[in-house]
Lab assay of single mutants.
Amino acid sequence: TIDDAFRAIERAIQAENEGRYREALKHFLDGGEMIVTAAEKEASQKVRNLLLHKGKEVLEWAEHLAEWILE
């Protein structure tokens, strides 16, 4: 659900702030994927587009974090 997705993102932010970057990455990926999944089930085109945009933002952040971890 969207609530689960945002809880995962909150955990990711907390982990990132505490320097637990790999854990943060996992939570960002989980949250982003949950948002995209919820968007695919959404009946309203406007809400679907907003959710897809937010999911994409979260997944892009996860990608940047992963690249930073690997440096």
Rank of each mutant, 00 (worst) to 15 (best):
I2T: 04
R22I: 06
K26A: 08
L50I: 15
K41E: 06
F28Q: 02
A5C: 10
I2N: 04
H64L: 14
K54W: 15
A12R: 02
S44P: 00
L51D: 01
Q14N: 09
A12K: 00
E16I: 15
E60S: 11
Q14V: 08
L29M: 08
E23P: 00
R48K: 12
L29F: 05
M34A: 10
V58Q: 01
L29Q: 08
A24S: 03
K54Q: 06
E10A: 09
L29E: 03
D3M: 14
E63F: 12
W68A: 06
R11N: 08
D30S: 12
R22N: 12
I13G: 02
E60C: 11
W61Y: 15
L50N: 10
A39P: 01
A39Y: 07
A62R: 02
A39S: 06
I2G: 02
L51G: 02
T1M: 12
A38I: 12
R11K: 12
F28K: 00
R48E: 07
E57G: 03
L29S: 03
V36M: 14
G32Y: 15
V36P: 01
E63K: 14
I9P: 00
N49C: 14
L59F: 09
F6T: 05
S44K: 06
V58G: 00
G31H: 06
T1R: 07
F28M: 05
W68H: 05
L29W: 05
N49Q: 11
D4A: 05
A8D: 03
A66M: 05
V58C: 05
E23C: 06
I9T: 00
D3S: 13
D4R: 05
G32Q: 06
E60L: 12
L52M: 10
F6D: 03
L70G: 08
Y21D: 02
L25H: 04
K26P: 02
T1Y: 09
E63I: 11
E63H: 10
A12S: 02
K56V: 05
E10R: 13
M34F: 02
E42M: 10
K46P: 08
T37A: 14
R11T: 05
G19R: 04
L29A: 01
T1A: 10
A66R: 13
L59W: 05
A12D: 00
A5R: 01
A43M: 13
N49F: 11
T1V: 08
L51A: 01
L52E: 04
R11S: 05
E40A: 13
L65P: 00
L51F: 04
H53D: 11
E18Y: 03
A5W: 08
V47W: 10
K46G: 11
F6K: 07
L50E: 12
E40M: 15
K46L: 14
L52T: 04
A66K: 12
A43W: 07
T1P: 09
E40F: 14
G55K: 05
V47P: 01
T1N: 05
L51Y: 04
A43R: 13
R48I: 07
E42I: 13
R20A: 03
V36N: 08
F28V: 03
